[in-house]
């Protein structure tokens, strides 16, 4: 990558602005340092590599780790997508997308299939990722053993020795208190049969998507200055007990807008009388399906194509979706 300089486009075509950024904000030495950390992380799947995290022009907790990883891997030809809880249009996603539009001038998209780099907070897109794509996770607490062992020196030693009994204690506690493993997000996984890793606070629903994914998955923790990675086609196995095996959440009803099933849904409260709806957490996936003519129980009448437009692949949705409409 060349050390090109991006000039922010002047608003209203006025004077060129005084602020000029290096490509993707970070200086080249810093990006090189981060890339070295990334390469090491890829070489040792699931291992947390310390790196000299920089101060970014946003507060910790807003994705500074992911932003630094993205900045280090972004090239001029990349197409960037940023999601927050599956959504392209929440404050965090919009802010980060505009940050890279401003500092790197790269193309951005909301379509999963069109993106080369996807920075994400707390979700993996529903559309299966392809080889060549990079998924960058924002990570608040990278250490999966932190719950039971506060000492960093000790957790590092436990990782070194593959001494992971402790994390099963947490799962045991879940079952003892709730009757099942109640950890529903940041569900710990074993990567490549060696390191136990916190997959960041994604719902455990997304855990199976990490397993043998063709895409490269990178994790950046800004506050704790750690980078870790899951290379393409790497086994990622959730921890569990023989008599309490790992299982993902199931949703009783399909998406109320696109009728999608087998996807992760958000609950939306509609009124004070208990009215609620379940919609896709992945806004791009939902919009794409709606654009293809899929409908759900609460699709707006003007957006709803005729019931016959539903593809044959989704008979239950079409049935329930159209049947409910007045």
């Amino acid at each position: 990558m060349t050390a090109e300089t991006v000039t922010t486009p002047a608003p209203n075509g006025a004077e060129p602005p005084a602020i000029r950024y290096n490509f993707a904000y970070l200086d080249e030495q810093t990006k090189r340092m981060i890339r070295r950390a990334i390469l090491k992380a890829i070489a040792i799947p699931g291992y947390q590599v310390p790196f000299a995290g920089r101060e970014m022009p946003m507060p910790y907790g807003w994705g500074t780790g992911g932003v630094q990883v993205t900045a280090a891997i972004l090239g001029a030809c990349d197409v960037l997508k940023v999601i927050d809880q599956g959504s392209d249009d929440t404050t965090n996603a919009v802010a980060i997308r505009s940050f890279f539009e401003t500092t790197a001038g790269v193309a951005t998209t909301t379509r999963t299939a069109d993106a080369t780099v996807i920075q994400t907070r707390h979700r993996i897109p529903e559309t299966p990722l392809k080889a060549g794509q990079v998924l960058v996770f924002q990570v608040p607490i990278p250490e999966p053993l932190r719950f039971l062992e506060p000492r960093e020196t000790e957790t590092r030693r436990l990782h070194g020795l593959g001494d992971y009994g402790l994390i099963h204690v947490k799962l045991y506690e879940d079952i003892a208190r709730h009757g099942h493993i109640a950890t529903t997000y940041a569900y710990p996984v074993t990567v490549n049969g060696r390191y136990v890793m916190d997959p960041s606070p994604i719902p455990k629903f997304d855990n199976p998507k990490m397993h043998m994914s063709p895409a490269l998955q990178l994790f950046g923790a800004g506050r704790e200055k750690r980078i870790y990675a899951v290379p393409p086609f790497t086994p990622v196995v959730p921890l569990d007990f023989e008599d309490h095996p790992f299982a993902v959440q199931h949703f009783a009803e399909p998406c109320a807008l696109c009728g999608g099933q087998g996807v992760y849904l958000d609950e939306v409260i509609l009124d004070d009388a208990g009215g609620r709806m379940f919609v896709c957490s992945d806004t791009d996936y939902c919009a794409t399906r709606q654009g293809e003519g899929h409908t759900g129980r609460m699709s707006a009448p003007y957006a709803a194509p005729p019931a016959t437009a539903a593809t044959g692949a989704e008979p239950p949705i079409a049935a329930s979706g159209s049947g409910d409409r007045p």
Partner: peptide, 13 residues
């Protein structure tokens, strides 16, 4: 149970 899990027991029951 911690010691049991630490030596590889993976059956909750």
């Amino acid at each position: 149970g911690e010691r049991l899990m630490a030596v590889g027991e993976r059956h909750y029951g």
